[in-house]
Nucleic acid binder design. Structure first.
Lengths: 107, 107
DNA sequence: CTAATATGTAACCATATGGTTACATATAAT
DNA sequence: ATTATATGTAACCATATGGTTACATATTAG
């Protein structure tokens, strides 16, 4: 079975599958910030935010850097490129995809 | 809380989060086919395939068309565009994202 | 008509997921 | 030194997820 799905890509898509995590990513697009700021912004508990950040970090979509008692969260650009490429590859060949159905419908 | 996540977009990302479903999508890129062909190709039970197809159909990534006792499965292109746009928007502004951190690091 | 084929549904199961509260730890402030 | 703040961990819970087997239904073939 041909698969285009590496473990890394799977982590990225899993991470992107939760709307709160996507919101966190967009929140971070405004700029890097402290975990405390993410916690303040989202209407979920602190530990819930920590979990989401851990998922995002594991997928390499963000990094966490401890500075004193604060932790800076920043976006990391490499990982999402894989997902981007996957989707682009998916849509690039789109219009070539229906030959079989067309053949069928001509019968 | 600003959200860029419509229900539709969420369905798409949820659908894409499973590696088997992504494999099904790539399988269908070869061309539209019968459900039976998808069932034959993937090493999971028939009902498992049916479930995956239902998720993909609900996310509007595929359509199912019943022809006699067969069902033709084909990719549908509109839905994934939303996910593509989301990711593109994410990466478009990437390099502008780190001003806050930069400010911090200059201190 | 009867048998075979294609597909989907029902019921069930183990594990994953996303959330919570309570607590631990480390650093900064007073 | 003591208190307050920032963050993460532990334990737990309800629900979602992806899988299975058994069965139902619809259509085609013999």
């Amino acid at each position: 079975m041909v698969t285009y799905n590496s473990n890394e890509l799977n982590e990225v898509f899993k991470a992107l599958s939760d709307p709160t995590r996507r919101d966190i990513i967009f929140f971070l697009k405004r700029g890097s910030c402290y975990v405390s700021q993410v916690r303040a912004y989202f209407p979920i508990s602190g530990p819930a935010v920590t979990k989401h950040l851990s998922v995002l970090e594991h997928a390499k979509l963000i990094t966490r850097t401890k500075i004193g008692r604060n932790v800076i969260v920043r976006l990391e650009e490499n990982a999402i490129e894989d997902a981007k490429k996957w989707i682009e590859e998916y849509s690039t060949f789109w219009n070539k995809s229906f030959d079989n159905l067309d053949d069928y419908l001509k019968k």
